[in-house]
Amino acid sequence: MPDHVLTCERLVKRFGGITATDDVTLRLERGARHALIGPNGAGKTTLVNLLTGVLEPTSGRIALEGEDISKLAPHKRVHRGLVRTFQINQLFPSMTPLQTLALVIAQQRRQGARFWQPLGRDEEVVMRASQLLEQFRLAEVKDVPTEHLAYGKRRLLEIAIALACEPRVLLLDEPVAGVPAGEREDILQTVAALPADVSVLLIEHDMDLVFSFARRMTVLVNGAVLTEGTPDEIAADPRVREVYLGHGEEAHA
Rank of each mutant, 00 (worst) to 15 (best):
A181R: 15
L138Q: 03
R155W: 00
L172A: 06
G178L: 14
E147T: 06
I203G: 08
C165V: 01
I203D: 11
E166Y: 08
R128P: 04
A193T: 07
R184Y: 05
L209W: 02
V179T: 02
M207R: 13
A160K: 13
I159F: 13
L132S: 06
D122M: 11
D122E: 08
V200L: 07
V179I: 12
V210W: 14
D186R: 08
S130F: 00
P180I: 05
I187S: 07
A162D: 14
Q189D: 12
E166I: 02
P195Y: 01
K142N: 07
A129K: 03
V198D: 00
A139R: 14
I203P: 13
Q117P: 04
D208P: 01
V198R: 08
L202I: 12
Q135S: 08
E183M: 01
M127S: 12
L133Q: 10
L188E: 05
R184K: 15
L170Q: 03
V144S: 06
L188I: 02
R184T: 11
C165Q: 15
L138P: 07
E158K: 03
V176F: 02
A139N: 12
V144D: 01
L138I: 03
P180S: 04
E158N: 12
D143Y: 03
R128N: 04
L156G: 03
E158V: 09
A160Y: 09
F136P: 12
L133T: 09
Y151L: 12
R168E: 14
L132P: 06
A196F: 10
E204W: 15
K153S: 08
V169T: 09
Q189S: 09
K153Q: 14
L157H: 15
A162L: 14
L157E: 15
T146I: 11
V126A: 11
G178F: 11
D197C: 06
P175A: 02
P195L: 08
E166N: 14
E134M: 00
V198Y: 01
P145F: 13
A196E: 15
E147Y: 07
A196C: 09
L202M: 15
D197W: 00
E158F: 06
A193I: 00
H205D: 00
I203R: 06
G120M: 05
R128I: 08
D173C: 02
V169H: 02
L201P: 05
M207V: 11
I159E: 02
E185I: 10
